[in-house]
């Protein structure tokens, strides 16, 4: 039990009973995700207070989230103070890859869980010195369904979609692309070898999320990364310190 985040179920809730036969019907009207949302609000307030720009990276397993992070950290760590929270069901493999870049990282293993929640992120923050931090990258569990419902307190969700997955992912998983302000089309160096229609992919994403911001990148050749980095730097400057 933790006193910081209200793990203890101490909240009082008003309810209005009325009798129906022998049994009473109690009105509750409480959001099921209220607890997560409260903790997300607390995380967001902390990020605002400390001037930390925060992204929540979501995608299918294997779209290249960790590789994107490795590349981004290696190229920008001299300009921006980063930290990374890594979410996976098991293993610390991704955290080890991030640690090799020299950036502070903490691994959260969710066990059976299919997503990170605001509670795990709140506790994960204890592993970093927040006063210096400018940007927090949260790599969510590889899953295009569940992480869409859980606010972590981030500034933006960023969806990654690699060209080996098919351009219709935004139509198949609209909830996730609707929740993401940014979409990265990754592994564009493979476009000559796969059947992936970039224009269609953009059209589908725009259809589920009008105005979504799209970057086309390859972490292997470096193509398109300058635009991504430019946007990150702009956001960090806007948020910050």
């Amino acid at each position: 039990m933790c006193i910081d985040c209200g793990c203890a179920p101490a909240d009082h809730h008003h309810s209005a009973p009325h009798t129906k036969g022998g049994a009473k019907t109690i009105s509750i009207e409480e959001d099921i995700l209220a607890k997560n949302n409260r903790l997300a609000v607390a995380n967001r307030a902390l990020f605002a207070d400390k001037g930390i720009f925060t992204l929540n990276l979501v995608s299918s397993p294997g779209s290249g989230k960790t590789t994107l992070l490795e590349k981004t950290l290696a190229d920008l760590k001299s300009e921006i103070d980063f930290a990374v929270l890594e979410g996976d069901q098991q293993t610390a493999n991704d955290a080890e890859r991030i640690a090799a870049t020299g950036v502070p990282v903490h691994q959260i293993n969710t066990g059976a869980g299919c997503h990170l929640d605001a509670h795990m992120v709140g506790h994960g923050l204890a592993h970093f010195s927040l006063d210096k931090l400018q940007m927090l990258m949260i790599e969510n569990v590889g899953n295009l369904v569940c992480p869409a419902s859980f606010d972590l307190g981030e500034d933006f969700k960023v969806s990654l979609l690699s060209v080996t997955e098919g351009e219709d992912k935004p139509l198949k998983y609209p909830q996730m692309f609707r929740a993401s302000e940014i979409m990265l089309i990754n592994k564009v160096d493979l476009l000559p070898y796969v059947r992936f229609d970039v224009a269609k992919c953009r059209e589908y994403a725009e259809r589920v999320h009008p105005g979504i911001k799209i970057f086309e990148v390859s972490c292997y050749t470096g193509e398109g990364l300058d635009q991504w980095y430019g946007w990150l730097k702009e956001q960090v400057a806007r948020k910050g310190k």
């Binding site: 909240d11 809730h13 009973p17 409480e30 099921i32 869980g113 299919c114």
Partner: peptide
Amino acid sequence: MHELGITQSIVEIALRTAAGQ
């Protein structure tokens, strides 16, 4: 399977309300 986490929240809220009543 995030329905499990969601159900745990439902159970938590329901039991808390029941105890209050």
